[in-house]
């Protein structure tokens, strides 16, 4: 009996591991910045090059920092959700415009709507590197003290907003 049970057991274990592997997304690399202070930055604003936006402007309220670019296809996909979220006023949304051209970024905001209180203009992508950005869009949940609580790699969807991001925002606001 045992001689059949052992290979069967090994097979079952293998199935569990391989099945788990099927559902792991290798592009979801856990960020080492979770639980750490959001990296400092001072950047010009997208809509007004003479004005600056800095990390300290984000403090005091729970914020979403959304990394976007006009050349990014998945950003276009998530954009209506951001606009809708901004309309509800549930959370402050800031943008980090990543390696974009100002005129393209402005046209994007003009055509698709602007959900951001302010978008920082990271032309060189240097701040993006500090935030460990490697696949736009990315969205960071930052608490009142400026600690990064969550990072979403890839586009926002109704599911991840409803199940993960909004509950976390509410918890941090409470």
């Amino acid at each position: 009996m045992l001689r059949y049970l052992i290979p069967l057991g090994i097979f079952a274990l293998l199935v569990v591991f391989l099945a788990r592997g099927l559902y792991l997304d290798p592009h979801q690399v856990p960020s080492p910045l979770i639980g750490k202070p959001a990296p400092d930055f001072v950047l010009p604003q997208v809509q007004d090059a003479t004005q600056q936006i800095a990390r300290k402007d984000l403090l005091g309220k729970v914020t979403l920092l959304n990394v976007w670019a006009s050349w990014c296809v998945a950003c276009r996909q998530e954009h209506p959700l951001l606009v809708e979220l901004a309309r509800t006023g549930a959370v402050n949304i800031y943008g980090l415009n990543y390696k974009d051209k100002r005129e393209d970024a402005l046209r994007w905001l003009d055509q698709l709507g602007n959900p951001y209180l302010v978008s920082a203009f990271d032309e060189t992508g240097k701040v993006g590197i500090d935030y460990g950005v490697y696949g736009v869009p990315e969205t960071y949940v930052i608490d009142r003290q400026g600690i990064i609580r969550y990072k979403l790699i890839g586009p926002l969807t109704e599911e991840n907003l409803r199940d993960k991001i909004l509950p976390l925002v509410k918890e941090l606001q409470g």
């Binding site: 690399v29 856990p30 960020s31 080492p32 460990g132 490697y134």
Partner: peptide, 8 residues
């Protein structure tokens, strides 16, 4: 780089 992107 590890500080920003992790051990990966």
């Amino acid at each position: 780089l590890v500080q920003r992107y992790g051990d990966f």
